[in-house]
């Protein structure tokens, strides 16, 4: 197990390096100039020497290789640099948004898991009955309805019924749990519904697959209670693909809730990502890509570890 874990950790390093090289050079290929956008964005008349001075200030007058060396040097020393647009440290820009994004992702994951596991199991156990059909309609609707649209419907519903909308600014959970939850529960529901639909379908199909296996038939033949067959023998194996789906969805939620964050005016990583790309803020985009890539890699690692824990064949394979 230790050898497997070390091997998986070592694989993360070249992956992250590859992402760093790709994102750095791909960004520079894209046309557009942050300095022009920043200084001329509202039609101001700016002399070329002012534009040149600003480019120099941001280090954009250096060769690409030197810019890359500077950035990599910073990465290795834990310095993500300064946002070219806001001129504040990138770590600060990300830090103040990460708490909110993580909380929404965790709340949505808890909600989705709490819905998906029982519903997926019920659908599999009562296959082709009205219970299965109802759950499948619920799941297909969840896949068909975009989260942001559900978010808009929720907001309009709250406005129409209560003449109220969720708070517009973030309050940490430890400061005021009520204010925090009254803001974040709605996006968690909007996102968690779609998320639960994916996980419900995966749980159902995976469990159906496992329930056909010989060892399940053997367990039943031995007279093991059906509840124990499902809980101890079937679920443990059926959970492998479900864990993968939950892990990948969680990683996606960290930076992928672009439109939902806009709908609820959440100051999250997704919105920051879009702004940074729109502004051509190289340092911020690079850091965000590295952050999201790291999340995916770490979550994949955790999923792999869970696989190994759940299935001994993987660890000794």
């Amino acid at each position: 197990m230790l050898r497997y874990t070390v091997h998986r950790i070592l694989l993360m390093i070249p992956t992250l390096l590859g992402v760093a090289v790709l994102i750095f050079f791909l960004l520079r290929i894209m046309p557009g100039d942050i300095v022009e956008l920043k200084l001329l964005g509202e039609g101001a008349s700016v002399t070329p020497d002012v534009l040149a001075a600003e480019r120099a200030r941001l280090g954009l007058d250096k060769t690409l290789i030197w810019q890359f060396v500077d950035w990599m040097g910073g990465l290795f020393t834990g310095d993500l640099g300064v946002s070219m647009w806001t001129e504040r440290p990138v770590a600060h820009e990300i830090g103040i948004r990460l708490e909110l994004s993580l909380q929404v992702a965790i709340m949505a994951t808890i909600l989705a898991t709490a819905i998906a596991l029982p519903l997926g199991t019920l659908a599999a156990l009562f296959r082709d009955t009205w219970i299965d059909h109802t759950i499948r309609v619920f799941a297909i609707a969840g896949l068909a309805v975009p989260s942001f649209w559900l978010g808009m419907v929720l907001i309009l519903g709250l406005l129409l019924v209560f003449n109220w909308i969720p708070p517009l600014t973030f309050t940490p959970l430890y400061e005021d749990p009520w204010a925090n939850l009254s803001q974040l529960i709605w996006p968690a529901i909007a996102v968690g519904y779609r998320y639960s639909a994916v996980a419900t379908r995966m749980t159902r199909s995976s469990l159906l697959e496992v329930l056909k296996e010989d060892y399940i038939r053997t367990a039943r033949a031995k007279g093991v209670y059906e509840r124990l067959v499902v809980a101890r023998h079937a679920m443990r194996n059926a959970l492998l693909p479900v864990i993968t789906v939950i892990g990948l969805e969680f990683a996606f939620l960290i930076g992928g809730l672009v439109v939902t964050e806009q709908v609820f005016n959440l100051n999250g990583i997704g919105k920051l990502f879009v702004q940074a790309v729109a502004h051509g803020d190289y340092t911020l985009v690079q850091a965000l890509v590295m952050l999201v890539a790291s999340f995916f890699i770490i979550i994949n690692f955790v999923v792999d570890m869970l696989y190994a824990w759940l299935d001994p064949r993987i660890r000794y394979g």
Binding site: M30, P31, G32, D33, I34, E36, L40, H279, G280
Partner: peptide
């Protein structure tokens, strides 16, 4: 997009 738009005009 604004960045590409300014680039084209400039």
């Amino acid at each position: 997009d604004s960045k590409l738009y300014f680039d084209a005009l400039r």
